[in-house]
Structures are given as C-alpha cells and as structure tokens.
Design a protein around this nucleic acid. Structure first.
Lengths: 231, 231
DNA sequence: CGCGGCTTTGATGTTCATCAAGTAAAGTGG
DNA sequence: CCACTTTACTTGATGAACATCAAAGCCGCG
C-alpha cells in the first residue's frame, strides 16, 4: 500500500452519484484539487446578483433561497431548495454573471469547483456533460413548473402550497421550524405579508396547523392539500 | 466534381450558427439524413403535453406559444417566441415526455432531428454539447426572468409589457398583427380576458395605441414603457 | 430594560374577476 | 353568396380578493 497522497473526500461524496457518476476515481481526485468547501451561516449570501461566476457551486448541506431584487427594492423569491439542486448554477454556462442571488436559510455547506476545470471536464467527457445537462434542465423545469403552479392558486391556496412544500419536500415532517420570515413567504408566493399572516392565523383557528413562533405543526395535511388545489 | 449525393441544405442553414457551430460539414451532412422539416399551419399543435419525446425540434420560421393546461382546463401561456429559441426542447434530455404543449401562432416550419442521433453527437462532441447546454440554459433563464418581470407588474403594466414585447422583440415594428387572441394575452399575463380588453380600450382612448381589429399600432412607445415599469 | 425589527389584527380602499348582455367578426352549410 | 351559427370581442355593473395603512403586541438583543 504505497499511498501517494491522502484520499480525496470527493470520492465518497454523496453528490458524486448526482452529476459525477461518469467520472473515474482518478478524475475525481483531480477534481479534489480544484474544489473548496465553504461554510455559510444562516443568513449569509452565497452568490450575489451581478457578481462574476468563477465557480461551479453546489449545496452539500443546508437550505438556500434563490431570489432577485426588483427595481423598487423588494425581493422576489424564486425558489427555496435543498442540496443537490445547485440552483445557483443554472446560468453558469450561458451567462458571465449571476442573474440571481442565493442566500443560506440554514447553516449550509457549499462545494465550489473551479469553473474552468468543470468546463474542461464537460468538453472531454460526454457522459459527464450529459448528466450535467440533464440535471440543470431538470432544475430549470422544476422552477418553471412550480412558478406556474403557484400562479394558478389564490391566496390561501398559495399559503397551503408553501406549508405542504416544507412538510413534504423540504423537511419531510409535519413539524418543522420555518426557515423563513412571513415576509419571505410573501415574496415567494407573490402576496402581501399581512395577508400571509392572516391566512396562517385562519389555518390556526380552523385547527389545520398549530403555530408556536417559528415552529409549525401541520395537523391536517389532507385539508391543506384540498385548499392548495381548490383555493 | 464527383458528387456522391445531393448537397445537404443543413450545411447552409441559419440555425447552424446557433448550436451546430462545432460540427464539421461531414457531420452536418450526416445530420441531414436524420432530420425532417415539417410545416405547421397557424393554430396547429407542434408538441403535445405528455407526448413522448423522440425528436430534437427547433423552429426555423414562424411563431409559437409554449403553454400548459391546468387541472381546471384553462391554459397557462408560458412564453411566445420566435425561431432559434427551441423552447419545446428544454426538457428533452431530462424528461421522457413533453412537459408542455407548443402550438403555431403563425405558419411555422419546424426542423426535427432524431433525438438519439443528437444524443450521440452530444456525447462525442464536447463543443457541440457545450453550445447546446448554453443555449438551453439561456432559454430557461429567459423564461424565468420574463415570468418574474410580469409577476411584479399590475394589470396595465402587464398589458403594456406584452405590447412592447410584440413591438420590440417579436415584430420589431410599431405596427403589427396580433398573433394571439385577447384571451391568450390574458392567459399569458395571468389576468382576466375582460380586463385585458378593457385595458387595451383605455390605451386606445388615451391615444397610446390604435386598434383595427387584430392590427395594432403603437403610437407612444415611451408612454408604454413608463406604464410597463410603473403600472 | 428599552430599542428595533418582526408579527399580528382591524379598518379601509383599490384592484381585479366575474357575470351578463350586447356587438362584431369569422366560419359553415345550403 | 347569403343566412345561420359560432366564436371572439366589448362594455358596464357588481362583488370578491387582495393590498395598504395604522396601531399594538411580541420577541430578541444589546
């Protein structure tokens, strides 16, 4: 056992299964030399709208929101997402600068790989290129579909949708701590903060959810699903 | 001059510059054997939501709308677009079936290349793969950005936006024939048909536009821009 | 313990959808 | 080519949905 260098953590990284499937162990180790892991505390900004893109970034752990600021200064939240949906990187191959900002909603770990290195891999390795394209277009599709889904709902349907999104997709639990403010929910679903709060209060009064500050318990998932579908 | 077969029209196709830049003439001629051109009359459906994807399709000429049908049966128009934005193909590498429908708003010509052939090219040719990924992600980004832009506007801002879109992007002319019904505009901007019509009437009364049935003349572009921005 | 930001609730007004009724335009069949 | 049918468009009136404003309560943090 003559080990040349210490084993690369990327070789056993969960993310490998997602887009790095087609890379040999040796390539993965090379990748290791071009990557850096960075920790972001809740609230910190990972990518800034307008900033130059120099890295291929993806979320290893945590929770982030993708958003932009309108000319009047208010925020539009595009999506809230978990690891393996490296949303910040939709436009890395089509744009020079970030179109949107990304910030950490929970403490998060981001893996950053030099963009030129990834481009090189992409050009050399068809399988890698293919899985990357699939992943990126699936993410874009998901954002577009979600936006359309939200658009066809009314206020209470949208709030129900968000609660279900946290319960089913993000936390996979009926009890969870809201990682966002009421205002951020409003910016996400395109409604006013006051009305989001009002709707949450209504749900509480009707016994559909229980609220303890930031902690939410979804009592009646079925009812929420009906509301989400039919307003 | 011993010509083996008749020259392939793809070699001199305008679209070649868009995603087929990295392909040699010989490859392009091979591509020719796997492609078919199809004509669609105004109103005809090019792709059907749910249908299996077997071809890489792009628009050579004409105008199309990308849309989906909600569970209540009404339409959501996702985007309206000109050639070289092969919107139907965003998900060709990530999904087995079309997520959305595409129909022709004007007589259109669509080029269809066998999907497996394109996948083969993608795997073999890094440059081609790269330009294709860039193109696809740019299209997705554009749709997402446009959706966010529309979302932040009120009724009259959205109608102004659509008129400017036709004037500046689609027709590049202040006078044009509307390729869509009032209802389709409503489905596009997420407002009711009656209110779209009302707003057009208001614009007419204020002398911002002139309307002769389907023909529209934008008289005051500047005013429309102000309305689009500030409602 | 006091300040500032987030949350909550009520009151009010605006914006927009819906409904209905009528008109114009565009197909359709004899 | 005309009568008929259907579909698209238009306008007004009404009410529902939602935003805005304001005041008060809560919570965390210095």
């Amino acid at each position: 056992m003559n080990e040349k260098k210490k084993p690369c953590s990327c070789v056993s990284c969960d993310f490998r299964a997602v887009v790095f499937t087609y890379l040999e162990d040796t390539t993965i180790e090379e990748l290791c030399d071009h990557k850096e892991e960075q920790f972001f505390r809740k609230g910190e900004i990972i990518n800034h709208e307008g900033e130059k893109i120099t890295n291929f970034k993806y979320l290893k752990s945590g929770l982030v929101k993708l958003y932009r600021r309108t000319s009047d200064g208010d925020e539009q939240v595009i999506t809230i997402t978990r690891p393996f949906e490296f949303v910040s990187n939709m436009s890395i191959f089509s744009e020079e600068r970030y179109q949107y900002s990304v910030s950490a909603l929970e403490d998060s770990v981001v893996c950053m790989v030099n963009l030129e290195f990834i481009k090189g891999l992409f050009l050399k390795n068809g399988g890698f290129a293919f899985s990357l394209l699939s992943k990126i277009s699936r993410i874009s599709d998901k954002i577009i579909a979600q936006t359309l889904d939200i658009r066809q709902k009314n206020l209470i349907g949208r709030v129900a949708f968000v609660l279900l999104y946290f319960t089913n997709d993000i936390y996979k639990s009926r009890v969870f701590d809201l990682p966002v403010s009421r205002k951020e929910i409003a910016d996400y679903i395109g409604m006013s903060t006051a009305n989001v709060i009002r709707t949450l209060s209504d749900f509480k009064k009707e016994g559909i959810i229980r609220v303890f500050g930031k902690t939410i318990e979804v009592v009646d998932v079925g009812k929420l699903e009906i509301i989400s579908r039919h307003g």
